[in-house]
Structure formats: C-alpha cells, structure tokens
Design a binder for these strands. Structure first.
Length: 534
RNA sequence: GGUCCCGUGGUGAAGUUGGAGUUCACGCCGCCCUGUCAAGGCGGAGGUCGCGGGUUCGAGUCCCGUCGGGACCGCCA
C-alpha cells in the first residue's frame, strides 16, 4: 500500500486506485463476492472519515432495537438486508409497470389534495391557507379519481399510487403505503383478475426469478368456512371442522343454543407443543377467543384410549363423544378447540386460533396466492340505523345471480367483489362497480341512504355517471405487503426506506413536530390546550 | 380506546429470596503482532439500570405512575 494515510476505519469513505489481480493460491476466500481478486500497488485517498456507527453495519444489527435502527436509518439502509429489500422493491415496481404497459394500461397521476370524503378510513387533513377554515384531505386511495377516469374514456388506467390513512399502525400497516391502483372499462370480473394477476406474477418473477403457478380462486364462503378467514393462509392445513350436527341433540346448554359449532384439531404430530398446552396456554387461547368475540372456548384434550379430558366432558353423551372423535378424526395427544356461536363468529375465532397455532413464518413455505371471490354485498347490521352495512363499499355491483334477492334477502346477496391474498396477507381488493344509477339507488336504499342523502354525500361522485359511464371495475393491491412477503420480511417497515413507528413517529426526523405559531396564524388555526390528564 | 411483552456502558445479553454498577460478547481508544478479509495478543475508557414516585435499613430486582419501542384487539367503507 503506497500511501501517507495512517489508517482506515470502518465506514470511512475512501478512493483506491491500483491494479486488480487474482489472489495468490491459498488466500482465496470463497465466502466473499470479491474473494478471488485483490488490489496491489494501491493509491488510497480518504474522501471522508467517519465516526464509529451506533450499531454494526451488518447482519448483527438485525437484533438491534428497531427504534435505534430507525433513528439512524441511513446507516441501517447501508446493510445488505435493507439494500436487498429496497432493490426487490424497485424490481417489483418496475415489473408491475411493465406488465401494465404491455396490457395497454395508461398511467395517470391523480391529485394528492382533494376534498374530504369522510366515508371509510380516517383522513389526513391539510389546512387551506387561501380559505382559512377549509381543508384538503390526502387520498385514502385514488378510488374517486379512477372511476372518473373511466367516465373520461381512459378505459385502462393504472397508477402506482401513494395512499394515506390516519388509522392505527400495524406490522402490515403504515400511514402511507403504495398501491398498484387499476381500473378498466367494459370488463368482467375475470378480465380484472386476469389483468392484475399478470402484474402480480410479473412482480413475483422479477423478485424471485421463478414464475408462480396460476392464481387459484376460492369463494368467500368457502374461505370462511374452511379457514375461518377471508384472507386464508393456504400454506398449511388445519381446516375447520363442522360439528353443528354432532351436537344437534345435545343437553350441553352452550352447544344446544348455538347456531353453529365448529372445531379445530391441533394435531399432536404436527404441533406437539400446542397440542400439549398446559392450563395457562389453554387460558390464553380462551382469552384470545373472547377477544375475538366468542363467548368462550371449549378445549378438549384427547388422551390415551381416546379418553376426553375437558371441563365440559361430563356434559357430553357417549354418542356425542364418539361422533366428535370421528368427525374430527382425532388421535391420542390431539387438542380439540371448539367454538359454538353464530357461524361467522365460530369461523373467525377458530380462524385466528388456526393462524396463531399453525401459521409458518413469512419466509417459510411456498407462495400461495389466492383470489377470494364472491364477497357478500352487505356485512352485519349497523347498530344505529338497523340497516345492512356495505361489505366493501356501497358502489360494488351485486352478483347478477343474486340481484333478485336484493330487497327480499339482502344479506344473502353476493357482490362482484374480490380480494387477492398471499400467504394469509390481504394484498388488495377490487370489484365491478355499479354504473347504472337505478341499481345504485336500489343499493343505497338497502343501506338506508335516501336519494337526497346520496346526492348530498356522494353527489360529486355520482353526478358524472349521468353523462355516460361505461361499465367498469378495478382493483388495488398494496405493493409494500407484496414486497415484504417476497423479501421474506414479517413487517412492511423492513421494505420501506423511511417508515414510521407504531405510534406514527419518525425517530430520525422526530416528525410529527409542533410548528411555528406564525404558520398556524397564516392558516387561521388556533390550538386547543392539551387534554387534561387526571 | 383496550390487552399483552420489552427498556441494564455505543450494541446485544446475564443479573439468584431485594444486599456495593457486578458479569459476558461485540464495538470504541492505545500499544504490539499480522496474507488479512466479522483476524490475533496485551492494556484502557465507557453506565442517572428509560423517567418520576412509593415500600424497605437497603431497589436494576417489589408496587404505582409515566415516557419510548413492539405484537395484537378495536379501527383500516
């Protein structure tokens, strides 16, 4: 080394010129990308010295407190893991664009500043300087705009759009997230699924170098009934088992009054630890079940000779015991979990327990994409109005086979609405939209929205449809989630360059921060005193 | 809004029935050595145990509160 530089340390920025040559025998390091070569006759210039970083810039930092990693995100991103993730992200974005372009979709950018539309997710508001007291909202999604683009004759629109929702953050939710947003005119549901599938497959291919098999489909009802979730993770079995008939004549009160009884068999061979759960773990399962809305959880341990060990065993007849074991194909050592409730509650509760117990880590197992189709048009009854609530949003086209029941049996009506699910993560959803004003009125009526209400709340949206709106439908899926799964990450923060913490702050910039009173003055905003703490 | 978990030198951890800021690894600083590449040897510095209060003769340890981080429920039409 020819240089007057005294030493060089980690993270210093240096420029080295010299001769590259093969390493002498015995000094080759196969573990390094550059392990076969070395530089000699070097001239080294220190371009910038560096303080020692707060954590090692390598895989060891995976264990460092995430708050510290976020505070020094620019160092965290130097690490191979983050470099890899951000590069996968770029490839996915690029592949999606390519797939949409090939299909003749037109990329259109839509506004960030728009009117507040309080339906749906809580919005971020932006005060107007020119009209103090008035506010813009940041888009929860470009839904409004893309449907207007259909009216406007952009018959295949797409955008990789940033969406903002002021709702509590999770491992798979950030305030800001990216969606492939698309809308098409003159299409069927299958046309939309095909177009989006092409983009997803292209993205997966770009990220992983292998083409996933064609995306399978499952109806919403089957997904709920078999997996207890509208976003089923198909990487593992443990399907819910129908037990309502088994206990049709039972004297056990909790079962006798229930509309639906479902069971989950925790197989001792596959999940020995969970199947052998002790009292505290069983209590935790029960708490979880209650948290999810069940009145309780019945656990039954299957002992040697298929004897049943359970607090409720004494209430079950021999016939019921035999039928239960038969129906659940239970073996010694298994743990059986039963929920008796409304069908949807039984399914959902056991679906959560199924995930808690059986779900493999994100980076494990195959990639199981699935279209969940035929979502119900309405889900649940609004406690205040006593009217059905939209399952997705009030603009979904009802399933043509069910339209005749819209007034007579609304809760049984399916929608032309669909979700895309990957390994138990909801990637996104879409629907065929209502383009016929009369149909829209019928749906609104079911929701308890009068024509006047509709005009007042959605007029700016519905008015354009009077000028010749083509039949249309679309979809949007979250690319952060897709990239996270393809990168094997449990958390979308790992695939976002500068994410927020769960409380919505940024440890690096300290956002959100108070602002200068002068700024508030200009916006005509006065702050309330902070809420009193008792 | 709620439930649960975590917080100990720069980083990661251990810390026993409550008994001196004790320990380990990495990093950092200095010296030595060196065909090394997450090197090796010797020495050294570095901590308000998140913060506040309480119990106690005595608190990293127990209790209450609070702040920060995380997982989840609600929420996300």
């Amino acid at each position: 080394m020819v240089s007057d530089v005294k030493d060089v340390r980690n993270e210093w920025v240096v420029q080295i010129t010299g001769k590259v040559q093969a390493r002498p025998e015995g000094t080759v390091n196969a573990n390094l990308p550059t392990g076969g070569i070395e530089m000699v006759e070097c001239q080294l210039t220190v371009l910038n010295a560096a303080e020692s970083p707060p954590f090692p810039i390598d895989a060891r930092a995976d264990d460092v407190d995430e708050g510290v990693r976020l505070k020094f995100r620019y160092l965290d991103i130097r690490r191979e893991r983050m470099q890899k993730n951000l590069r996968i992200r770029a490839k996915v974005n690029s592949a999606i664009r390519g797939a949409m372009e090939v299909q003749n979709f037109v990329e259109v950018e839509t506004p960030f500043l728009m009117p507040s539309t309080p339906e749906g997710a809580r919005e971020f508001l932006v005060p107007s300087r020119k009209e103090p007291g008035s506010f813009y909202a940041l888009p929860q999604s470009p839904q409004l705009w893309k449907q207007l683009l259909m009216v406007a004759g952009i018959d295949r629109y797409y955008q990789i759009a940033r969406c903002l929702r002021d709702e509590d953050l999770r491992a798979d939710r950030q305030y800001e997230f990216m969606q492939l947003d698309a809308e098409m005119s003159f299409v069927t549901k299958d046309d939309v699924l095909a177009a989006i599938s092409q983009a997803v497959v292209a993205a997966a291919e770009a990220a992983l170098g292998q083409t996933p098999p064609p995306i399978e489909q499952i109806t919403w009802h089957d997904a709920m009934n078999r997996f207890g979730s509208d976003k089923p993770d198909l990487r593992f079995g443990m399907e819910l088992i129908e037990l309502t008939d088994v206990f049709a004549a039972t004297e056990f009160k909790a079962f006798a009054t229930a509309k639906s009884i479902k069971g989950l068999r925790v197989d001792a061979a596959t999940y020995p630890e969970a199947a052998a759960s002790g009292r505290s773990k069983l209590d935790a399962f029960t708490d979880r079940a209650k948290q999810m809305g069940a009145k309780g959880l019945v656990w039954i341990k299957v002992g040697d000779d298929l004897a049943l060990d359970s607090p409720v065993a004494k209430f079950l007849s021999d016939t019921e015991r035999a039928a239960l074991l038969q129906q659940m194909q239970a073996k010694s050592g298994d743990l059986l979990l039963l929920v008796a409730d409304e069908w949807s509650t039984s399914c959902e509760v056991l679906g959560h327990l199924r995930n808690d117990i059986g779900r493999p880590p994100v980076h494990e197992g195959p990639y199981r994409y699935v279209w969940v189709i035929d979502f119900p048009l309405f889900v649940g009854i609004n406690a205040t109005t006593g009217k059905p609530q939209p399952g997705h949003h009030p603009f979904c086209q009802p399933h043509p086979d069910d339209i005749e029941r819209l007034e007579t049996d609304p809760m049984s009506v399916r929608a032309l609405a669909y979700d895309l699910v990957l390994n138990g993560w909801e990637l996104g959803s879409g629907s065929i939209r209502i383009h016929d004003p009369e149909m829209q009125r019928r749906v609104f009526r079911q929701l308890g929205i009068s024509d006047e209400d509709a005009d007042r709340r959605f007029g700016f949206f519905l008015q354009p449809f009077k000028y010749g709106a083509p039949p249309h439908g679309g979809f949007a899926f979250g690319t952060d989630r897709l990239v996270a799964i393809l990168a094997g990450e449990e958390n979308i923060r790992e695939v976002i360059a500068f994410p927020k913490t769960q409380s919505g702050s940024d440890p690096m910039t300290n956002a959100p921060t108070p602002v200068d009173p002068a700024q508030l003055n200009e916006l005509g905003i006065r702050l309330l005193p902070p809420p009193a703490k008792s």
